[in-house]
Amino acid sequence: MRQFRLFFRKEMLEMGRSYKWLWVPLVFLMLGVMQPIVTRFMPEILKSAGNMPKGMTITMEPPSGAEVMAQTLSQYNSVGLLILVLSLMTMISGERQSGVSQMIFSKPVSFVSYTAAKWMSMLSLITVSFVLGYAGAWYYTAQMIGPVDAAAAVKAGLFYLLWMWFAGSLTLLVSSLLNPAAGIAFVSLGAALLLSLMYGMIPEYLAWSPGALPQLAITFLQREGGDTGKAGALAISILCMAVFFAGAVSMVKYKKSKI
């Protein structure tokens, strides 16, 4: 437990000194706030662009608050995921690559504590960044577009947060398996996108897949209902995270250094 605290403190300090604690939450906040603002001013923007054919009027149904929130979540699924993977990809491989791990692992350290500290700091960074961004999106949506059902928004947020946690866990697992940063980014991002795309194509077969989480979150907001397998997807995702963690612990132990 003491070692976990030491490792965790070090991870937090590192994320602070490398400004991850600044730029990741900021990017998430920007992504969150952008959608309602852009939506609100879209008609003006189009008007001022001014090259509409004469006599043509665009009649845009002003979107509801919930719709804007759902669009925000889709934003997170592309740019947000990319930022997340990029900021986490070298968390485990980096120390092995540089060689610091040789000094750390020749000391009587627990591999579980080491990996758990990485996991906890990853979850903290994701949670803070996402909550900040999502809260920002909610605030601006309520101000500029219209009210959002609180229960739906919270539920959607939680499901989406779990999806981000899952993607973060996946990235750390890949980071414990591979060394080249580009490879880690490619595999983690590819796997996460593939999971959510595949759910989009054949939802009936993948109702319990973690890839269902982003879509499920959006469904809460659109209140279409009827989607089954929420509990299943939840359980499977948490199970996957636990398995990823266990896998990373044994990989860290097995590949102590690159020699």
Binding site: K10, G99, V100, Q102, M103
Partner: peptide, 9 residues
């Protein structure tokens, strides 16, 4: 233990 090329943070 001191590695051949010690690397730190």
């Amino acid at each position: 233990y001191l590695p051949q090329m010690p690397v730190f943070y």
